[in-house]
Structure formats: structure tokens, C-alpha cells
Amino acid sequence: MTEKSTNLTNGPERLKFFEDNWQTEMGAWFPGERVVLRGKDVFTELNECSWMEYIVYAITGKNNPKLATIIEGLSLLSTSYPDPRLWNNRIAALAGTARSTGALALAAGIAVSEATIYGLRPIKGALDFLYRASDQKDHGIPIEEIVKDELKANRSVSGYGRPLINADERIAPAMRFLKSIKADSGKFVKLAFEIEDYLKNTRYKYQMNIAALNAATVADLGVSLNEYYYTSTLAFIGGILPCHLDAQTKPEGTFFPLSVDRIKSMPCANREWSN
């Protein structure tokens, strides 16, 4: 009996139904024997997968080596910068200089990669925008109108423009990689460049950033928003780990120390607490 067949929508009866009753097609461990993921035996049916192919299968339920190759290649080229000034990497470096653990540094680094000005929000947002833009284009709406509507509604276009600098040095190497695996000329990749062609000539002068190209690439494989979100959660660890290790192996507390005069306090008169 499944939940649906019980017609339980809410209330404690629903919890009672699920008490010690987790029915799943996702997977399970049979202690001392075997393990199954999405109906396949891990030891005999998934044992020749690459690590990323396994993760893609876990997330999507589909055997998709091309998507795994794209995720690995683009994660390496576009989201694994070993620079501890970048906000998520800096957290891992701070954990290193403060002599915390590697797993805590990595967990915190991944958690903050779910950011707004970079990371998972733009990553998911770029795919969302491309799917909506493509749909509108299919209905005959010109690129100019699609982009103007997006700017009007959100004052930004996910995947275009970039904090700190406008041009994105990752586009060229990413395109070389995508060309090498014949993933550089799909409908969505073309659309991403079409949108850039329009945007860079507007007063915003936005260029495409890597989020748009990466999203376009997976869109050409029909990846859903959620699938893309989950496969992207690990994309930053290649940059996070070296930054942590670097700080961990230097004298403790020496990663960008801040003296008292590095605090710029906004004016506030001294006062005394009264109970």
C-alpha cells in the first residue's frame, strides 16, 4: 500500500501511516550483502560508472555519461578556482587558518555557494531564464522583447553580467572543451549567444557569464531545473579544498588578519546601559 492509495492529504493520520514505514524506489543497503540504487545493484550493475556518472544516475535516474562528462569538465573549468579571496573559498581558508576540520570547511563552503551574486542561485536562475526565453522565442517573441521584459521584472538577467568584472575568461576554454565533446552548438547554446549579442550592445553592456553557457549546455541535454541544481551543488569543491589546505598548512591565524583599524565604525555616541 502506498501513501497515494490511502488518500491521506495531511494531519496526524498521514504521519501515523509513515511511522516506521518508508517505502522507496531510491535505494537501500542490505547489511552484509548488497546495495541498490534506483533499482540497480551497485556492486554489479553500477560498478563501472565514473563517480559523476553515479551521481548523475542518483539524481536523475538516468544513465547519462555525456551529462557526467559535461559536469566534470565545466566544474573543473568554471567553478573550481583555487583563490581564497572568493567568498565561498575564503570560508574554507578561514576554517583552515582557525584550525577547524576539512569536512567542516567543505560543508560550510558548499553551503555558502548557494549564493545570490554567484553560485547556485545564478546557476539555477540561468537555466530557468533560458528555458523561459526559449519558450517565448518559440512563440515568436523577439530576443529584444524577452530580455527587456526580464530586465523590467527582475532588474537583471541570470547568466549575464558579472560582479567585479564584466568579461568572463571561462567562456573560451569552456567552448573549447564543449567543442571537443561536440556539445557546443545545440539550440540553447546558440540562444545563449544570441542573447549576449543583444545585451552587450545595450546600455547595460552585459556579457554572457559562464552560468549562461553552462546552463545552455545542460539545457541541450534536456536537464530539468532541479536536476541541474543538485548536480551543481558539488561544483565548487575543487576550489574550496585547496584553499582550506593552503591555510591549514600555513601558521595559524595568518590568513588575511584584520587589525582593529580595519573596522570602519559608523558614527554612534558612547552611552551607558541603564536597567
Binding site: D20, N21, Q23, T24, E25, V36, K40, D41
Partner: peptide, 9 residues
Amino acid sequence: NGLTLTNDP
């Protein structure tokens, strides 16, 4: 004993 794999091969 709380987990049931409904598509166990």
C-alpha cells in the same frame, strides 16, 4: 525494519 525497497532487483 522501517524501510521497504519497492523496486528491489
